[in-house]
Design a protein around this nucleic acid. Sequence first.
DNA 1: GAGGTGCTTGCGAACGTTTGCATCCATCGG
DNA 2: CCGATGGATGCAAACGTTCGCAAGCACCTC
Lengths: 335, 335
Amino acid sequence: MVTVHDVARAAGVSISTVSRALSTPERVAAETRDRVTRAADELGYRTNRAASGLRRGRMHAVGLVVPDLENPYFASVTKGVQARARSEGYDVFVADSDEDPAVEAELIRALAARTDGMVVASPRSDDESLRAALAGVPAVLASRELSLGADGADEVPYIAVDDASGVDQVLGHLSALGHRSVGIAAGPPTSWSGLRRVAGLEAAAERWGVTLVELGSFQPYFQGGVQAADHALARGVTAVTAFNDLMAIGILDRLRDRGVDVPGEMSVVGFDDVRMAAMFSPALTTVHAPLARLGGRAVDLLLARLRDSAPASAQLPVELVVRGSSGPAPAGAGT
Amino acid sequence: MVTVHDVARAAGVSISTVSRALSTPERVAAETRDRVTRAADELGYRTNRAASGLRRGRMHAVGLVVPDLENPYFASVTKGVQARARSEGYDVFVADSDEDPAVEAELIRALAARTDGMVVASPRSDDESLRAALAGVPAVLASRELSLGADGADEVPYIAVDDASGVDQVLGHLSALGHRSVGIAAGPPTSWSGLRRVAGLEAAAERWGVTLVELGSFQPYFQGGVQAADHALARGVTAVTAFNDLMAIGILDRLRDRGVDVPGEMSVVGFDDVRMAAMFSPALTTVHAPLARLGGRAVDLLLARLRDSAPASAQLPVELVVRGSSGPAPAGAGT
DNA sequence: GAGGTGCTTGCGAACGTTTGCATCCATCGG
DNA sequence: CCGATGGATGCAAACGTTCGCAAGCACCTC
């Protein structure tokens, strides 16, 4: 291992100078500086993060906790987090809580101790346990709001997608296609963005003159969609808007099994636009959420918070992507 | 921050004793030991990884480099790596090379410096650059073989899936269904497992009395499959076996677009059994590869290598999962 | 009863880096 | 020409942990 001593010897300076030349270049004479830098990369010097971290208290690493890495939603967020962090010189610890709040809390505590801060994607664990796990940890939330103070003050900065706009676009689209009765396949009642999307749908329904039919709450996966599809048929809606793409795909699959033509007899719309959405047939009409960018922005927020501590939560714009799973309402329906 | 000093004071012992009680419990008297442990977790003590790492030279962290986190294959491997590492008390740095060998090399060097070892999934970068990047780094390869010595000696331990058995099962299955002419939609020529699967197919073809038709090399994604599908139709095969599921799904999609019934007119078989494979219609017949387990085993190998340095590469068994995309060869074909 | 054995504990150095403080030197103003 | 000023550099301490070494002590054996 090549240390700062080796570089110092090679450059003919003291180790302090090496350290300064590398971390605060403006505090060292130009000529000395590049003698040092030259020596450093000739020897292949890399500063020892452990030593540096010990001394400065900064590890140059961030942590990321997600409920399931195999879920394409979180895979994309992870990709974005990693990319942005790396471009800022930070490395990222990733941890998968397997949807278990207890594991999640433990992961947060474990990683918080060896990182400068955490990005946490925890769509469904309850406020109380998340609050406890996050106490004293510099963190940014992905797709979720949470205040640390019981009174709603001291909010954890978060970065989310503009759900209201997304569902508004969905309903506008369906309305324009003549749908008057739209089923909602909601996500888990504990999901922050799930609730938010339902609320947005209700607001949008009024605006677009559409009647909403609540089909129930379902697991935000393929099987949840399968269940939802039967409810949609039972309730006689002409379109269904699902909490997310995975559910929408389950709906599509079930409808095909039951011989229902999509979009001829029923339109289906998802949310998120995971890669998979475009691979189906009919390809899924869905709201494109810039998930990798969301991850990147979360890192930006976190680093800003670590530096000047002036973090501003943000909403990312979304955009409806019309594909094959939505079409005109069947003639004679509604109206 | 609570340090070993605080614990020592609370327990009425020296810091050495605290350190020993926590890391080598057998070297400290039972009564003292649990006085210390009690004090430790009353105060919420967590050993400072930076300090510990600095002193011991072990960071209790492993690195993982993959080409694309959004690819379900690597998402599963990542999940497995993380789970196993965590169960051994290790945290994992994850890095996405975006399929770029130069980035990959840089990531390996960067992470190697702050971890105890690396798990590297690099299916397609060339031997030479990978060898260079891995020099002096304790590493385990996922789904790839590589020797460090130019003469083929000094092999990097690896963990892969039993490709030969997988493709043999595929061909056995297709043969039993009466297929005599099977198209191969191969992966990139630089892919280690791609080559391996083709070789396995050739061996199996002989055994099963099936004629192989090489359709070409395609990108291991959806679009690659779309291309391959047209070739399959052009060549008049009754079944196609794809390099992986993503390609197989692309084939499925294209065949549907072209009005070809699957499996009536053409059977399609994938490889890997990513989650998505079961969601399609027809659901994909494919070879189930235990990818999360593969990630876990990679970690086992790495940790073994770090401890006793007796690493034994291994192959994981695979199993054909027959679903809807494969069926009897159309009557009158072949024979 | 004296010397030895082995278990438990404490002391202090070391890991590699950063940084406050001191030193040195050149430049500048009076 | 001398003292002040300030930029560049070096010295040494400190970050929190681990571990070699040695001291202390109780117990055992001859």
